[in-house]
């Protein structure tokens, strides 16, 4: 039972990422694309965690943690570039 539920959730997360890619393709401004990228990042973190449970290889939880921090720094750099025109 639990495996079917987790598989359904993974397929749903992939579909939501595709919908967010549609929004990132047709977004009128840059900030729509930033928001869609944020959603895709969160979905990828959830997919990594669910696969680490399904595969019983729990070392991928550290990978998900590093991925969260890297995505946060990337979003901050993009927003600072948009506000001030330079990063450093």
């Amino acid at each position: 039972m639990i495996n079917t539920v987790l598989n359904i959730i993974v397929v749903g997360l992939i579909l939501f990422s595709l919908l967010a890619i549609i929004r990132a393709y047709s977004g009128p401004t840059v900030l729509d694309r930033v928001v869609a990228m944020n959603v895709i990042t969160t979905n990828v973190v959830l997919i990594i965690l669910i696969f680490s449970f399904l595969d019983k290889s729990f070392y991928y939880i550290d990978v998900a943690f590093v991925f969260v921090l890297g995505a946060f720094i990337g979003t901050l750099c993009i927003l600072k570039l948009l506000r001030e025109g330079h990063i450093i």
Binding site: N38, V68, F72, T75, L79
Partner: peptide, 18 residues
């Protein structure tokens, strides 16, 4: 728990900055 705390603090901060 650590990942959940990170996401719960990071996501509203990023939304506010956007």
């Amino acid at each position: 728990i650590l990942i959940m705390a990170m996401i719960i603090t990071i996501n509203p901060v990023v939304t506010h900055l956007i």
